[in-house]
Amino acid sequence: MTDNALTLFQLCDSQFPTGSFSHSFGMETYIQNDIVVDPETFSDWLKVYLHEQLVYADGLAAKIVYAALDEEDFDRVWEMDRLLTVQNLARESRDGTQRMGKRMLDAVDSIYDIPIISLYMERLRNKESFGHPAIVFTMLGHHLGVDRKTTVVYYLYSTIVALVQNAVRAIPIGQTAGQKVIHQFQGELKEAGDEIMKLDDYEFGVVSPGLEVSQMQHEHVGIRIFSS
């Protein structure tokens, strides 16, 4: 692993201040419905979330944004920011992702001096863009010279780690079980990264209806600890 890849890996820490600990992105609905109840059923849900939503939304968007940054096609970057937001039909998940994007943007801007990050922040202040963590993460990876696939896989990893930590609290499954899930998902992440590299841009936004419905239903669950 190169020094710059290690630098990017800092954003994969579940303690990085993005607010990810407040969001389950529909997982809590499955917990309330007694579908996700232990490490095994959580792993089943996480595989679907990774391969049926993250791959075709955040992951593919990161790939597209990285290529756009290579070509200095910033209009394409802002277009992906818009598409990531409007294709997210669940209000809570959409709003939560925007908050996470803004918090990641603030944190990255406080650590690094990157012109495209500063421009993204200005666009958010002017309400010209929405803000999304996948785009911020990709901007930093590109700036650091981390290759496209590594940047994409690291982003997927950061999302998986955050969801595992939330499952530890919500199901609960225990810290050791959570670490076992992360270990078991190394192969899944590689597979997801390989799949994203093969996808065409037009495949963006293909997601599982079941996940979308659970995210929409979340605001109506009886007792909850997450915002989405």
Rank of each mutant, 00 (worst) to 15 (best):
Q10M: 14
I196V: 13
H218R: 07
A5D: 04
I171T: 04
P209D: 11
N166H: 07
F42R: 02
H220I: 11
G187M: 08
S158C: 01
D73C: 08
N166W: 03
F16S: 04
E203P: 00
T7L: 15
I111N: 03
L156R: 01
V146I: 11
V207H: 01
H142E: 02
Q179G: 09
D75F: 09
K47A: 01
V55F: 00
E71S: 15
S14C: 08
Q184T: 11
Q179W: 14
S158L: 08
M104G: 08
L83G: 01
V221S: 07
R125M: 10
L211A: 01
M27Y: 09
T150C: 04
G187K: 03
Q179A: 13
A177I: 03
S43M: 06
E71K: 15
I117A: 03
T159G: 09
E128T: 09
E72H: 15
Y56A: 03
I117E: 02
K63E: 13
V108C: 05
I35C: 05
A67H: 15
Q179H: 15
M80P: 05
H142S: 08
S22W: 14
L89P: 05
W45G: 06
A170G: 10
D147L: 01
L83Q: 12
E52R: 12
T151W: 04
H218Y: 10
Q186H: 12
P172Q: 02
D38W: 07
L156P: 07
E191Y: 12
A177S: 15
T97A: 13
S208R: 12
D194G: 03
G59C: 10
A68M: 05
L144R: 05
D3W: 01
Y202K: 14
T7F: 13
L69Y: 09
L69G: 04
V152S: 03
Q217T: 11
A167M: 09
M80A: 02
V86C: 11
A68R: 08
F185C: 00
G222V: 10
V161E: 12
T2A: 05
G193D: 07
Y157M: 06
D81C: 03
D81W: 05
E71G: 05
I135P: 02
G187A: 07
I31W: 08
V181F: 02
F74N: 13
V181A: 05
P133M: 01
S20E: 11
Q184A: 15
E52G: 00
T29E: 06
A5R: 08
L8Y: 10
A62Y: 07
E191R: 10
K102F: 14
S93T: 14
V153A: 01
V206P: 00
Y112V: 06
A57P: 00
D147E: 14
R76M: 13
D95P: 00
F185K: 00
E122M: 11
H143N: 14
T138S: 05
A167D: 05
H23C: 07
K102A: 14
Q98E: 13
E52V: 00
I160Y: 03
R148P: 08
L84P: 11
G131M: 09
H183I: 04
D81P: 02
V108R: 04
S118V: 00
H220P: 01
E28C: 10
